[in-house]
Deep mutational scan, measured.
Amino acid sequence: TGEEYIAVGDSTAQQVGDLTFKKGEILLVIEKKPDGWWIAKDAKGNEGLVPRTYLEPYS
């Protein structure tokens, strides 16, 4: 379980453990880390770190 967020920009994984996503994708945020990198899952079930500045709450 988690909260749904929509990507407001494209982000390409810079290192192992990062999640690549495109603008408009809905991501499920699993954990919000205080350093600004959140753990999220995409629609295909891929999981990784995403920069919170690229996400907005999805409603």
Rank of each mutant, 00 (worst) to 15 (best):
E56T: 10
G48M: 03
T1S: 12
A40C: 15
L27V: 06
P34M: 09
Q15Y: 10
K32P: 03
R52V: 14
T20R: 08
L28I: 13
P34R: 09
P51V: 07
G24C: 06
G9M: 15
L49I: 08
G45F: 03
E47D: 05
K32C: 05
G36C: 04
K44F: 14
K23Y: 06
G48W: 04
G24F: 04
T20H: 10
V16D: 12
Y5S: 00
L49R: 15
Y58Q: 06
N46D: 07
A13T: 11
E3Y: 09
E47V: 15
K41L: 11
V8Q: 06
A13Y: 09
V29H: 00
A40R: 00
V8H: 05
S11W: 15
N46M: 07
V50N: 01
G48D: 02
T53C: 14
W37K: 11
G9E: 15
D18F: 15
K32E: 04
A7L: 05
Q15G: 14
R52E: 15
E31T: 10
F21E: 00
V50I: 07
Y5P: 00
L28G: 02
G9H: 15
G36M: 04
K32A: 04
A7F: 08
Y58R: 07
P57R: 09
T53L: 10
I6K: 06
A7D: 01
T1M: 13
E3N: 08
T12A: 11
K23I: 08
A43M: 11
I30Y: 06
L27F: 06
L55E: 02
I30T: 07
G17S: 07
N46H: 08
D42Y: 00
A13R: 15
P34L: 10
Y58D: 03
K22M: 08
E3V: 09
K33D: 06
P34Q: 10
G45A: 03
N46I: 07
E47F: 13
R52L: 11
L28Y: 13
D10W: 05
W37N: 11
A40L: 04
P51C: 15
A7V: 06
S59R: 11
I39T: 07
T1L: 13
E47H: 09
D18H: 15
K32L: 03
Y5N: 01
G24H: 04
A7Q: 01
L49E: 06
W38C: 03
E3G: 07
T20Y: 08
I39A: 04
Y54V: 09
K44W: 14
W37F: 13
S11H: 15
W37H: 09
G48C: 05
T53F: 11
Q14M: 13
G2M: 12
S11L: 15
T1V: 13
V16S: 11
P51H: 15
W37P: 05
A40I: 06
L19K: 01
Q15P: 05
I30A: 02
E56F: 08
P57D: 04
E31S: 11
P57Q: 07
D35R: 01
G9F: 15
A7E: 01
V29A: 02
G24Y: 04
I6P: 01
V8N: 09
V16L: 11
S59W: 11
Y58S: 07
W38R: 00
V29T: 01
I26N: 02
E47C: 14
G36S: 04
P57G: 04
E56P: 01
V8E: 02
N46P: 01
R52C: 15
E3F: 09
E25L: 02
L27W: 01
V29L: 04
G24R: 01
G36K: 03
G48H: 04
Y58M: 10
G17N: 07
G2T: 08
Y54F: 13
P51I: 09
K22F: 09
L49D: 04
T20Q: 11
A7G: 03
P51R: 12
A13W: 13
N46Q: 09
G17V: 05
V16N: 10
S59T: 12
K33N: 11
L19N: 01
D42Q: 01
D18A: 15
Y5F: 09
G17D: 05
I26H: 05
P57E: 08
K41E: 04
S11M: 14
N46S: 06
I30E: 02
G45C: 05
D10N: 09
T1D: 12
E4H: 13
P57V: 08
P34N: 12
Y54Q: 14
I6Q: 06
G9P: 01
G24S: 03
L19M: 05
D18I: 15
W38G: 02
P51G: 08
L19D: 00
S59P: 12
T12E: 12
K33E: 03
V29F: 00
Q15K: 14
K22S: 08
A40F: 03
Q15F: 11
Y54A: 13
D35Y: 04
R52W: 14
I26R: 05
D35F: 04
L55M: 06
D18M: 15
N46C: 08
T12S: 10
P51Q: 14
G45E: 03
I39N: 04
L19F: 05
T1A: 13
Y54E: 09
F21N: 00
L55W: 01
